[in-house]
Structure formats: structure tokens, C-alpha cells
Simulated assay, not measured.
Amino acid sequence: MVEEILALKKKGYTIKQIAQEMDSTIGKVQYRLRKLQSQQHTSAPKKEMEYESHQVSPIRNIPSSYELDRIVLLPQGPESIYIYWDLQSSTRHMVSHHFRKPWSELNKKLKVYDVSDLLFNGHNSHWNIDISLPEMTDNWFLNDLEANRTFIVDFGIQPDSSDFFTVLRSAPIETPRDESDSKRLVAVERWKAGDCQSPEWLEQFSTYSIYSLLK
């Protein structure tokens, strides 16, 4: 029956004319044609997708150091700061020479200062803590801090029998406010209202480096 339908279609017959010629119904003719189309679609070989190959250049090795003397603080939230640092080879060499020890044998630490509302001179923080660092460490997460406080972080060496020796000092950074903290907002409003001549806070830090200590 299908062959007859196809033969009549080639002659230009319409579906209605094919049905009349074959003494059938239009619905049966349409059904036979749809079934034939479905079979042809299923049996047709699938074309494989062709992918153009692209040569990907290898990722360059990330250097272990960028030869910069810097320590950077990035706030991660009201109670958290991310710290990373880098040192020049020449700086590490000078520190090693100063303490007469290889760099890998020196006791490295971070010292964290709360300097909120202070003219910081290196000693007058509200509080400070020391964090001992594993060898080869160049970053640290500092958690459980207070919101809306100003912090400075030193990277340095803790000798066995003397005071902490600062190698790098960060710029001050303030942790974000939380919803319950209104201290600074009140101070700003007092200043705007003329109740005080200047805002009731001051954030500065002293600038000294290892180079001045080694001269």
C-alpha cells in the first residue's frame, strides 16, 4: 500500500486524490505516510558531531614570590580578615644575616594590633596577639575579630631571647560594621551638629621598616 501511495505522490496526486484512487480514506493515507517518515528518520544514520580541535596553551607556572616587600589585609566580613604577604630575596637575606641563621630556621610570626581610634606608634594598641606561622606560609585567615575595629598586622621574626622583630607592617584596615554597631555613626552625627571640632576618631600608623633598623 505504501509503494502505491508513493507512486501516486510522484505523479502529483494530492492526499485526497490518492485516497480516492486507492478506494481508501484520507486518514489512512496520512497515517501510512507519517509511519513511513518515522521509520526513515529512525533508520537514518546519525551524523557524528565534528569538533574543531583547539590547541590550548599550557598555564604558566605561578611564581612562589613576586619579589615585593608587602603585606596586605582584605576584610572578609565583620569578624574576619584575610592576610597575605611577600618578601624580596634580598630582604630575606638581610634578615638571615642579621640573626646569623638561615631563613628557614627563623621563628616567623604575625602580630595583630587593635589600633581603633589611636595614633599607633608600634606599642600603644588596645591589645595585640601573636600568631606562630608554619614554614613556607604566605597567607592567613584571621577570625573571631570585632566588627568596626581598626587593625594593623606585622610580619616578623621572634628570636629566642629578644623582642619581636618587625619585617613588614600593613596599612590599617577596618572590619565592616554589623547592624548593632552605632559608635561611629553617633560620632559622625556629633561632628555634623557642631558638638565637636573634629570627628572623634583618628587612624594612623607609624612608618618604619627593617631597613632603618639594620642601618
Rank of each mutant, 00 (worst) to 15 (best):
I152L: 14
L168Y: 04
W191N: 01
P176Q: 02
A171C: 05
I173E: 06
Q158D: 11
R184I: 15
V186R: 08
V167I: 10
T175Y: 04
F165P: 09
R184A: 12
F155D: 03
V167P: 01
S161V: 10
V167K: 00
T175V: 05
V153C: 08
D163H: 13
P176Y: 01
Q197C: 01
D154P: 01
E179K: 11
V167D: 00
G194H: 02
I157V: 15
P172E: 04
F165A: 07
L168D: 01
V188L: 15
C196P: 00
E174F: 02
D160Y: 05
R190L: 04
D163Q: 13
C196G: 00
G194I: 08
I157T: 14
T166C: 04
T175G: 02
D181L: 02
F165M: 09
S162L: 07
G194P: 01
V188K: 15
F155C: 07
S170H: 02
G156K: 10
I173T: 12
E174D: 11
V186C: 09
D178H: 09
R184N: 09
D163T: 03
T166E: 05
S162A: 13
D195K: 11
K183F: 15
F164E: 07
P159Q: 02
I157F: 13
D160K: 09
G194C: 07
F155E: 01
R190P: 02
K183Y: 14
G194D: 02
S182T: 15
L168N: 10
V167F: 01
A193F: 05
E179A: 13
F164N: 00
D195F: 08
D178K: 05
P176C: 03
I173Q: 07
S162R: 12
F164M: 08
S161A: 14
F165L: 10
C196M: 05
S182Y: 13
W191R: 04
E189C: 13
A193Q: 11
T166G: 00
R177C: 14
Q197G: 10
R169C: 03
E174R: 15
R177Y: 14
D154K: 10
P176W: 01
C196T: 11
R169N: 03
D195T: 03
K192D: 05
V153M: 07
V188I: 15
C196K: 06
F164L: 04
F164V: 08
R184M: 12
R190T: 11
L185H: 12
F164H: 08
D178V: 01
K183Q: 09
S162W: 04
Q158H: 10
P172M: 05
D195A: 08
A171N: 11
E189F: 13
S162Q: 09
E174I: 12
F151C: 05
Q158L: 13
A171L: 14
V167N: 00
R184D: 15
A193M: 12
D181T: 08
F164Y: 11
R177Q: 14
T175R: 06
V186K: 12
D195H: 07
D178A: 02
W191G: 06
P172K: 03
